[in-house]
Amino acid sequence: MQPQLATQIHNLHLKNPVMTASGTFGYGEEFADFIDLGRLGGIVVKGTTGERRQGNDYPRMAETPAGMLNAVGLQNVGVATFCDEVYPRIKDTDTHIIVNVSGSSIEEYCAVAGRINELERIPAIELNISCPNVKKGGMGFGTKPDMAAQVVQAVRKVYGKTLIVKLTPNVTDIVEIARAVEQAGADSVSLINTVLGMAVDVERRRPMLSTVTGGLSGPCVKPLAVRMVWQVAHAVSIPVIGLGGIATAADALEFLMAGARAVEVGTANFIDPTATVKIIDGLEDYCVRHHIDDINDIIGII
């Protein structure tokens, strides 16, 4: 018998728990030559802001052991162009398209979320209160429980569909933030965004990134992410989406067992554009091998 891989995040029925992480999968189109996008549980598209943003200066990326730093800084076309030009191209993709909503002020978050709310084929947003690479807003909203609650409350008023809030690991106690956004009306939390890091080019005696600091991602952050997912999953009753360094089915299973109802694959897409479907196949193999009929049976077993 085929194992059942479907999971549920609030009102979203996912055909399997594997989604893509914002900022690592473009609008999905970039990967259509390599995989059948319809196989994915969902695609979280590039962080979208009120206005077009140019992002930070080059260099924006530095390779690190088992990972990378990035400081892209939310370069994106802006919500109007997204709605007018990008949405028509991607709306019929045979999976859930989730928009990552970013901003520098509560007003901007609300304006973007309100506009995305009108798009029939977008069933959810991921509210990015955790980007470490912008000067104003971004992570500033995600590091204090009262600020996080304020922005979620405000967006909740203008956004009626599934509201996922993406959390930053760059805090003393992520559980406190998760509880605050749950109270404020979030339907789900996704974690972790990148870990604030830094690298130095010792030959040139200069920082590797134009912004000096940036967000660390990739396999090197996975144990930290699994720990935080486990902590948060035990503390809130809304579904948790786990991400941070997932490259294989075994990585995804760690998050699921730690309590994630779904996962997002990020940096692995850069190394292997077929990573997501390999993970889905691997989850199925694992269930067959372990005589698991329904993947939900192993979610949160730890």
Binding site: G23, T24, F25, G26, E30, F31, Q54, G55, D57, Y58, P59, R60, M61, A62, E63, M68, N70, V72, Q75, T267, N269, F270, P273
Partner: peptide, 20 residues
């Protein structure tokens, strides 16, 4: 310097006359 090579990560940008 590039990460993905396919236009997904936006790491390898050059400042052109009409933006990155």
């Amino acid at each position: 310097m590039m990460a993905c090579g396919i236009g997904a990560c936006l790491c390898c940008v050059v400042k052109s006359d009409d933006g990155h």
